[in-house]
Design a protein around this nucleic acid. Structure first.
Ligand code: MN
Ligand code: MN
Ligand code: MN
Ligand code: MN
Lengths: 216, 216
DNA sequence: AAATATTTTTAGTTTAGACTAAAAATGAAA
DNA sequence: TTTCATTTTTAGTCTAAACTAAAAATATTT
């Protein structure tokens, strides 16, 4: 296994490849490599039985491949917690460093680090940390876009993209913060959230897809 | 720069290549690669002006090369402190993980980690941590083999080899511990150390080369 | 249904980093 | 000072992981 292979498998997983077939095109976009390079890597992973492949359609992870993806994500997210809680990184800063560290972490190191951090369940943007055996604790949460007018909720998880996290930092939307949905404009218009103290935040329609909440 | 190149430069440095010419043979032993691979890597590093090369004699680090070596050693040793102090590793366990992590550490990460650890001066076996700018704090210390009979001293630094550290762990020789040299046998014979409380430890002649002390 | 556009694959090239085998240079012993 | 041993270099091979360019397959429009 190499860092490149690991990241490729993770990319398939993040595109839903443990359930559905993922196209080459999707991987081209996700990883910023050429279509030919995707085909190359596919044949390599196929040989190791980490994926299945339907010609001209795409790839899916095998059990073995899924396990590798989940264990890599575990490492990634445990490092993100460390960077955030112990080294004072903002939540939009953790991803890049964790993306390197995840490939340089022995199992022993991750288990000790996990102990040191007191076995966290979530990473800094609310992503759930897979268990050591590759299983995933299931957490109930609703996309903000599905919340009905007047409901109150708590922020549970937000999308992991650098710019989106920066945007939320600016908007002061944080994990665990509570709001009531006081307005939704039609035709994919903006949503207005209000805190207990009456502060209002307006978010676009697309942003509401990238935020998961728990109704309270 | 790649992990392999970094480790190669570090190996030259550890063999004294910031001052003296280091032979290919020495690098073959240090890195467990073939002589041809050493020549290959030499030509690559020469092209980047990280080393100078005298044909059939060996290589020396340039200023640029030395700086890279020192910064890598800084990363390595800061990670060793973290593994030892925060994650509870023994001093013989830290090296392998640090050898991977050193290549996956941004400058930001290392500086934050250094703060978190409260700017340590020494790694777990007493190696001095180079400064951010590549300079090295100078520390006075004497090889145990040069200590004269009857002198008292404190353990300052020990050699970084896995098996040697395991041996010292077994012998209960620890950094900072104080002894008096009560006997040296001739013909490269063993040394007998005694603590305040009268406990005696016998060490071989070669071990005494691998231990640095401060006379008290 | 034919034309056009998109996606995937194939074929061939490149670079880093390893290797083996053999030649050339240097050093040590007879 | 030859001879033998060691070290270094050269030459050629291999794999992983990228790339470009072109061919083949599939999907979308007209
Ligand atoms: Mn992340
Ligand atoms: Mn990564
Ligand atoms: Mn070390
Ligand atoms: Mn290393």
């Amino acid at each position: 296994m190499t860092p490149n292979k690991e990241d490729f498998i993770k990319a398939i997983y993040e595109l839903g490849g443990d359930q559905n077939v993922v196209t080459n095109k999707a991987l081209v976009n996700q990883l910023s490599i050429t279509a030919a390079s995707v085909t190359d890597m596919n044949t390599r992973l196929l040989k190791e039985e980490l994926i299945t492949h339907i010609p001209y359609q795409g790839v899916k992870l095998t059990e073995k491949g899924s396990l590798i993806a989940n264990q890599l994500i575990r490492k990634h997210r445990i490092w993100e917690v460390f960077l955030s809680e112990k080294l004072g990184y903002d939540w939009n800063e953790v991803h890049a460093d964790a993306d390197l560290l995840e490939h340089a972490s022995s199992d022993l190191l991750i288990e000790r680090l996990n102990q040191f951090l007191e076995e966290p369940t979530f990473d800094p943007h609310g992503g759930v940390i897979p268990n050591k055996d590759g299983t995933i604790p299931d957490i109930e949460s609703t996309p903000l876009i599905d919340v009905s007018l007047g409901s109150s909720f708590k922020i549970k998880e937000v999308d992991d993209q650098q710019e989106f996290l920066e945007y939320l930092l600016f908007k002061e939307v944080q994990l665990g913060k509570e709001y009531t949905l006081v307005d939704i404009e039609p035709y994919d218009g903006p949503l207005t959230l209000e805190t207990d103290s009456g502060d209002r935040t307006i978010l676009g329609h697309k942003a509401a897809f990238k935020i998961l909440v728990e109704i309270i």
